[in-house]
Every structure is written in structure tokens, then in C-alpha cells.
Design a protein around this nucleic acid. Structure first.
Lengths: 205, 205, 205, 205
DNA sequence: GGCTAAGCGAGACGGTACGTCCCGTCTTAGG
DNA sequence: CCTAAGACGGGACGTACCGTCTCGCTTAGCC
């Protein structure tokens, strides 16, 4: 069997138009009312689709919402690229904070909230949203390490969490504003800790 | 007005037994099934209380859940106190991570998730849980600043977010384990950045 | 304790207005569209009632329909009363046939059809509709027996089935019209068989 | 045009195996669960047939059920034949009652119930089941009339309804048992009314 | 001690959304 | 053109909770 084995199942094939209509409808409703007011019936009605069709392809409204979210946001992944990885990350963090200050931030927050109750939704969010963005950031950081801007003895995942964790924290808790000063201070602080020649202080405080 | 102003309303006074029974019931149900499966009817039934009584004193199930959560966790606020503020914070972060690895962590996550949909719940969580803990941490950090362990030119709130944000991030996303190594590395990294004499590098990377 | 013991159950008492509204709505819908197009949702909507309330008090739409039918038709039970029981029964059979030629007949047919699938509905129809009418007919027949018009050696229930069975048969099957000639012929035939002094011929033909 | 005109339509011819499988499946399901739980999807699945095929050849599930019923019961039409038409009819009524006391009776009842909501089903039942059996009974009664056993001035259809109507009545209503005593009493009663020389009493009671 | 007023349990009520089942139609590929 | 498979829009099902509303009964302070 070649690469096209098991090509055709019997019966009418799944309609892509339906998939698109559902994600489109769910996306709009999510923007309009948030996840709490999202209903499977509402999605079905807006998409002009039977409820059974919804449940045929998505196990829960969380799954629809997550897929709609991912379909809406996936293409954007731009990092700037200058000589300084530190500057590139900082710039991107500022852009991210700017974006998260309005609707996309609310959606990301709701996705994370959603994942607390449903492990599959959480995984889908990680795979479809967080992981690619983390990988992109790690790539930049790797450049910084190679260029000697950043210490080589800290795991990249820890750098990413240290840099971005505080942003998500403020966004999710809302205890203090997610403004540029905050972003710059966090970046400054962490990159100071990541500067080469500080390993002694860093490892055993 | 004296201290006893508006003291006695006519009619039967509110029963504290009811309040206690409700919070107890809600707490247990929260532990057993999580917020998603918590219902007002379930709380009422478990507490042996009329639904109307619930709605008389709490506006929503989020409010009951938050109050039950706060009643269950509030008393614990211990920080160690040694000569080193850096060590004290690090030790407390390790304890926190240990606690958050099981049920309390799940509850905190659900509270944060809950707050995404309901500003009042978010505020109650901040006031009743996060703010006191942040203040305690800031007090320790202030000691460190006074002792010259920690730079004086970074806002305490930013330190707190930089230290604890990554922990919450891992807990909420679950992309990587919240283990002691991670906690130590984050603390080391941030405290390295907070070490005095690095202001130049930190502020403008 | 007197006969009114266990008088008050706790909780809000059942609303009779609801019961009345439901039966009224079900009755109208039954007239308009027949049982096949009757739906619980339709009844609830028309009655301005929640579906849960419907299911709280009636186990199925058959039960609602039957109760609505009985509420609508129950009060009518008139038999004429002359010197001749045979004439009285015949007159009543003619009236019944006349009534059954239009809507009430269709409703009775649907009730009987309904009972084929649901024993409780069948029993409710028997108790609420058929049995009282059969008893009334048997009372008249008893008068006829006492007056010597009718043989005493045949069970009253058999007389009733012999007289009315053919009417229901034509109504349910619709193979031939339920007209006055038919009714008169059946009555004539059966009452001829019921005339005293024919016991020999009747019992062993 | 010869006898083979319009013989071959283009395309694949209708499969008789499909028809048989459908009626077989519908018959079994009808026996197992009754008409109320019969579904087109169930028939299709059990018969290994596409739903579209079902709808191509039968307009409704009532139609399938009726055809399945007729296919299952049609061949039996035996009346005994002795010198006495009255005895023959009575014997056959006893056999019929015996048969109707179990599954065939339930099926006939469901067919009649089914016909209340669907005129085409009713007509199919009359044409395929009732009318042939009535004609057979009328033939026997005609013999009785010719032999002088039975009055000649009563329509045969009325005799049939008077004899069989009460049986169906008891079967459909279930108010009293359909036992041999009942059958014999009804037959005796009606045949007494049908005995020659009683025209006076019968026609004007 | 009786009165007034609220708290309280119970649970009925009008609703909304759930997730399932089946309807009758359609779109595939294959015979 | 028939067929099996099965996706599709639609609609009703029966259930679970929502938040509100009556009930009868406490449980208090005040006259």
C-alpha cells in the first residue's frame, strides 16, 4: 500500500463547509459574548447546522471554542530579528502585551481558564497555541546564547517561563496593569539574571 | 453613631449555622468534583438548606465557591525568617510549589479560571487570597532591600510577579512540571537579576 | 387524627392553574392537529409552562392527552328514560353514533389507539371513559331484564359488548359508514337475540 | 407490443432481496418491540440496507410495518366447512379469539391503532387483511342464508360486524377477557337474532 | 403573652441548554 | 439506475439547573 492507503471511507464524506461555518460562528459568538455565554445551540443556529453534527465532530463546547480560537489566531508568529536576541525578545514581549490588553488577551485567558476543567482542551491549547510560540521564543534565545548575550547554563524553557510567566500572571489575575513599563522591567530583570558571568550569584543565591 | 448603631433589625436574625453549613458543603463538593460540577442545588441539598437562602446571601455560585475556598485556605501564611530574605523567599516558593502540586493547586487554578468570567469573583480572590500573600512576600523582600541583598531600584510588585508569575504559569498551563529544580532555577535567575550592582545591565539590556 | 390527616406537605403546593392550563392547551392542540402532531414542547409552550412541570405531573404525552380528553368529555352521560329499555338503548346508540361521526369519534379512536402502546393510558381511558358509560348502559339493560323485555340468562357485559362493539368496530376500521341504518340494524339484531323465550336457540345454535 | 414490452428499464433493477430483507427485519423488530419502538434506522440497520433505499420504496414506517405484517400473516384464511354455517362461523370465531390472545392479536391491534393516524395504512390494512377475511365470512354466511339457517333480510356486512365487532372491541379495549365463553355467548346471541322467523322482533324492537 | 417581621426548609414554577435519537434528504463510491 | 454507508439540517425528546416564587414553620425583638 502506498501513502494513500485507506483513502476512501464509505458514505458521504465530512463536509468542510460545515466545519468552517461552525468555527466561524463559534468565533463570532466568542467575540461577542465570551465563553460563558457560548452555547452549542447558539453555535448550531448561527452556523445553520444541526446540533447532532456539532456533537458528531466535537465532544464539547470547549473543544469547539478552542478550535475556533486556534483557527482565528494561528497564523501570527512574527518575531523581530535584529543583532540582539535580548532586544528581539523584549520587543516581542511589548507587542504581545499590547495585543493582550484587548480582545485577544481575553480570549487567551478564557482558553487557559477552559483548560483548567478539561485536559483535552488544555492539551489542544498547548499544542496549537503555546508550544509553537514557545519554540519560536526559544529559537531567538538560542541565538542569544550562541552570540554570548545570554548564559548557556540555564534551560531555555526556564528562560521562557521566567520571561513570559509574569505577563500571563498579570493578565490572568488583573491585580496590576500589563503596561510597557512592567514588561520592560520584567525583561530587564530576567535578562540581567541571564547575563553571562553571573552564574555564581544565580545558581546559589 | 455609636458602635451599636443600627444594631437590631426586626425579625429573625441570620443564622450563622446556615452560613457555616453552606461553606462546608460547598468546600466538600468543590474538592470532590471541581467547580464545573458544583451546583447551587447540590450545595443546598448537601447543606440541608433551602435554595432561596443561598440566593439571599450569595449572588452566584462563583461567590459561594470563592468564599468556601477562602474559608478553607485563609489561615496559612507562614514565611520562614532567617538572615537572608533571598533564602526565605526561595524556601517559601518551594513550599508553595509543593502545596500546589496537589489539591490546593487545583483549587487555586479554578479560582483564577473562575475570575476570568466574573470580575467580582476575581476581586474577591485578589482581596482574600492573593493580596495578603503578596504583601507578606513584599515585606520579606523589603527586608532584603534594607539588608542590601536586593537592588532598591525595582518595584516590589514587579519582583513578586517575576518570582511567582512563572510558578503560576506552569501550574495553570501544565506544559512542564512544577518541580523543585524549576522553582530554584527561577528564583536563582530572578535574584541574580536583582543582585545589587547590576542596575546598568538590567535596566537597558 | 380525622380523615384529613397528612393534610399539608412541605414546600410550595401544586398549582391548579398550571394543571388547568396544561389540559386546556393539550385539548386544543389535540383538536387542531391530532395526537400524532401533539408534542410535549408544544403543550408547554401553549400553556406557558416549563417542560419540567409537565414531566413532574405526567409521565408521558399519552397521559396528558388522555387526561385532557377526559377533562373535556367527562360530564356527558345522558341516557333517555322511557318505558322501554330496548328503545332507550337504541336511542342512545343513535346519539352516540351521531356524536362519533365527527371530532369526538376521532378523539375516542385516538384514545383507543393510544392505549395499544401504553397500558396505563388504556386503564385511564377505561376508568375515566368506558367503564362509567358501560355501567350506565348496564343499568338500563337491568331495567329491561326486570321488565321482562330482555332475557335474564345473558351477562350484562356481553350484551354491552354485543351492542356497542360493532359500532366501535366500524368507527375504528372505517370499512363501512357508521350510519343510523347500521346502528338500528345492529340493535335490532342483538335485541332480537336477547328477546325472552329464545334461550334454546341462542345458547346452542 | 408483445408481452415483453417495456421489459427492461435502464440501470440496475430493483433488488427483491432488499424487499425481503426489509420486511423480514421489520417483522422481527415489530415482534420484539412493537410499533412504538420501530424505527426506520433500526429497520435499515437490521436489514443491512441503506435508509435511502427504504424511502425509495416505502413512504413511511407505517407502510413498511403494514407490509411486513401482511407478509407475515396473509396466507391463513381457513374456515371449517360443515353442514352448518352457524357452527362454522362459531368455530372460526373461537379459533380467531385463540389466535388473538397472543402476539398476532397485539399486531392486529397495532395495525388498527396505526390506521387511526394514517389513512393509507388503514386502507392497506383493510384491503390486505380485513376485507379478504370478511369476504370469506360472508361466503359462509351466504351458505347459511341459502340453507335457511339464517335470515335473509339482514345485510351480510351487518352480520359480520355484529359477530366480529364485539371480539375486536374486547381485544382493543382489554376491559374484559377474550375467552371462549364470551365468544360463544356473542355468537349465540347474534345467531339467535339472525334465526329466521324473528324479523318482526328484530326490525322494530 | 401576643404581634410583627424576617429567616428558613421545602419544593413548584417558567425557563434555557443540554446531549440524544430519529426523521427524511443528500452526497459519495461502487455494482 | 440501484445500492450501502453515512453526513447533513431539523425537531422533539427527557434531564439538569437556573433563579424566582409561594407555602407553613420558626425565631427573634417590641409592645
Amino acid at each position: 500500500m502506498g501513502p494513500a492507503a485507506a483513502k476512501r471511507l464509505p458514505g458521504r464524506p465530512r463536509s468542510d463547509a460545515v466545519r468552517a461555518a461552525v468555527l466561524e460562528a463559534a468565533g463570532r459568538l466568542l467575540e461577542e459574548a465570551g465563553f460563558a455565554r457560548l452555547t452549542m445551540e447558539g453555535i448550531a443556529a448561527r452556523a445553520g447546522v444541526g446540533k447532532a453534527t456539532l456533537y458528531r465532530w466535537w465532544p464539547s463546547k470547549g473543544a469547539v471554542a478552542m478550535e475556533a480560537f486556534l483557527a482565528a489566531v494561528s497564523p501570527r508568529l512574527a518575531f523581530p530579528r535584529t543583532d540582539s536576541a535580548v532586544a528581539d525578545i523584549t520587543t516581542q514581549m511589548l507587542r504581545l502585551a499590547a495585543a493582550y490588553r484587548s480582545l485577544p488577551g481575553r480570549l487567551v485567558c478564557e482558553c487557559i481558564a477552559l483548560g483548567q476543567a478539561d485536559p483535552e482542551v488544555r492539551q489542544a491549547f498547548l499544542d496549537g497555541y503555546m508550544t509553537p510560540r514557545r519554540e519560536a521564543a526559544k529559537e531567538v534565545l538560542r541565538r542569544g546564547v550562541a552570540a554570548g548575550e545570554i548564559r548557556a547554563d540555564v534551560e531555555l524553557d526556564i528562560m521562557v517561563d521566567a520571561l513570559y510567566g509574569p505577563l500571563f500572571h498579570r493578565m490572568l489575575l488583573g491585580h496590576l496593569p500589563l503596561d510597557d513599563t512592567f514588561v520592560r522591567d520584567v525583561a530587564g530583570l530576567v535578562f540581567a539574571g541571564l547575563a553571562p558571568g553571573r552564574a555564581d550569584a544565580a545558581e546559589r543565591p
